[in-house]
Design a protein around this nucleic acid. Structure first.
Length: 505
RNA sequence: GGGCCGGUAGCUCAGUUGGCAGAGCAGCGGACUUUUAAUCCGCGGGUCGCAGGUUCGAUUCCUGCCCGGCUCACCA
């Protein structure tokens, strides 16, 4: 890779900025001074001025990036921006001094530079709150030109790879991640106020489990131990129920070694909570309550717009048995096909892709994703799932192969997944063994047997309901985005290709 | 991996039915004391993704490749 700082590689505009840097240093000005004088954030200064608390004798020191400049001879206007907002500054030659104004302000400063200004707050003839500047200092020089001030940065690849530029220039992106943070804060507020304990469990796990996914594998050099990045928190959180906590939750990162798509990133943020002495019906009610609380906190109401759809989160949400939903949408009643082969046959008759190696549960899941999921725009619970794809869920009484499980769908996406937790250690062991056999038979998403978890269950786990939700997807819904990359600051990207064709990293 | 779309100045984009490569912003020089996408005058800036082919001539047409986006497949 060429040295990004070598003279050879400089663009014309970068070369000019380097020359300014040299001039500044020759004039005894440190372009990256260690100290900053600041009395107010921009938002504070504006607010105080508008409240009449900053008079014409109150000197403020403001800081920010210079994002626009309009030089009109002996008078100039510019805007500076910090993390709280932007404000216009007015710079007069006779207030700054001819030397400093003509050379320093007009020539050596560029758009993108961080500057400090001292002056008084005032309002211009056009009514804009403005800092009338007595002195200007350079806080940090920018050596590269900013993206287009009007059109911003559109190139999707640059926006993801150089997110700092995207954020710098695209204010809606900056706002989006504030909404995301607010959403997560509201989730914590809700769960904390309901008596849940926030915990942290291992990311590096000797045995992975709790979901159907391929893991990332890593290695501890000093223990000579193979480890996996977690694919879920589930088995650790339920150990905490055994330990005596009634309500626990964790918000953190899961890692799944799978494809990237509009709805998938290899590492993603998950919320899981577990609650003793309830079941999936209780969890459904709590889900509605929590989501409604968060939506209201973040947006102010319960109805939002997502990609042109009005979505109403007002509880209660419809609860539809999975079998019924698939029957209504596809005409296929999977109860009539008690094994994978017969179900596969009827699916293929209808021209639906039905892989030979898929289990009955996976085929049902295929029907769900094909016929049902894309159309569930309004919040909807599908309930009662096949047992063979739900190895940690409690069997529904009176059934053989149905479990008490629901998934919540919004905006055509699976948002959350929950069930009555299986707490029968012997049943759990049998299901683990079935998973283990599937894993050995080549199902890469099956999980291995976790004997310590069986051991924990053997000491007794209270009846409980558990819940998992993709935070990123929820953020997509609340920020009106249709690609998960837009709500992850640094989404996973394929390695950047160099000119010689070798990849970096 | 398949299909579709794209890659032209730092940024956002036009354009060439094959004939000197364009605009706005940004930059440089100048004018300008109430602008705010400031304005006005002047200037610089390009491997038109890469390679090959057709042609007197290719940024434009053809082939291959690279890179990216969307989508399908994959994916609980």
């Amino acid at each position: 890779m060429p040295d990004p700082l070598s003279e050879q590689e400089l663009l014309d505009q970068e070369r000019v900025r380097r020359e300014k840097l040299t001039r500044l240093r020759e004039a005894g000005i440190d372009p990256y001074p260690p100290r900053v004088e600041r009395t107010h954030s921009i938002a504070q200064a504006r607010a105080l001025y508008e409240q009449g608390e900053l008079g014409e004798n109150d000197i403020v020191a403001l800081t920010g990036r210079m994002i626009s400049r309009r030089v009109m001879g002996k008078l100039s206007f510019a805007h500076i921006e910090d993390g709280t907002g932007k404000v216009q500054i007015m710079v007069r030659r006779d207030e700054l001094g001819a030397e400093k104004y003509n050379r320093f302000f007009k020539k050596d400063l560029d758009l993108g530079d961080f500057i400090g200004v001292k002056g008084v707050m005032t309002v211009t003839r056009t009514g804009e709150v403005t800092c009338q500047v007595r002195d200007v200092t350079l806080l940090a020089k920018a050596l590269k030109p900013m993206p287009d001030k009007w059109h911003g940065l559109n190139d999707p690849e640059l926006r993801q790879r150089q997110r700092y530029l995207d954020l710098l220039v695209n204010h809606d992106v900056r706002e989006r991640f504030k909404v995301r943070a607010k959403m997560i804060r509201a989730i914590r507020d809700y769960l904390d106020s309901e008596g849940f304990l926030e915990v942290e469990t291992p990311i590096l796990q000797p045995v992975y489990g709790g979901a159907a996914a391929e893991p990332f594998v890593t290695y501890h050099n000093y223990l000579h131990q193979q480890l996996y990045l977690r694919i879920s928190f589930e088995l650790y959180l339920k150990r905490l129920l055994v330990g005596g906590y009634d309500k626990v939750y964790e918000i953190g990162r899961d890692f799944r070694n799978e494809g990237i798509s509009r709805k998938h990133n290899p590492e993603f943020t998950q919320l899981e909570f577990y609650e003793a002495y309830t079941d999936y019906n209780g969890v459904m009610a709590r889900t509605e309550e929590m989501i409604a609380y968060v939506v209201k906190e973040v947006t102010g109401g319960l109805v939002i717009t997502w990609q042109g759809h009005e979505i109403d989160f007002t509880p209660p949400w419809p609860r539809i048995p999975l079998r019924q939903a698939i029957l209504d949408a596809s005409g296929i009643d999977y109860d009539l096909y008690p094994d994978a082969d017969s179900l596969r046959a009827v699916m293929r008759e209808q021209g639906i892709d039905a892989p030979a190696e898929a289990s009955r549960g996976k085929l049902i899941d295929k029907l769900l994703s094909h016929f049902v999921e894309p159309y569930l725009i309004q919040p909807t619970f599908l309930i009662d799932y096949p047992l063979d794809v739900s190895p940690l869920a409690k069997r529904k009484p009176g059934t053989k192969d149905i479990v008490e499980r629901f998934e919540g769908f919004v905006a055509g996406m699976e948002l959350c997944n929950a069930f009555s937790e299986l707490n029968d250690p012997l049943d759990q062991l049998e299901r683990f063994l079935a998973q283990g056999r599937a894993l050995e038979a080549g199902d890469k998403e099956a999980t291995p047997v976790d004997m310590d978890y069986i051991n924990a269950l053997s000491y007794g786990m209270p009846p409980a309901g558990g819940f998992g939700m993709g935070i990123d997807r929820f953020a997509m819904i609340l920020t009106d985005q249709d690609n998960i990359r837009e709500v992850i600051l640094f989404p996973h990207l394929r390695p950047e290709k160099r000119e010689d064709g070798k990849s970096e990293q």
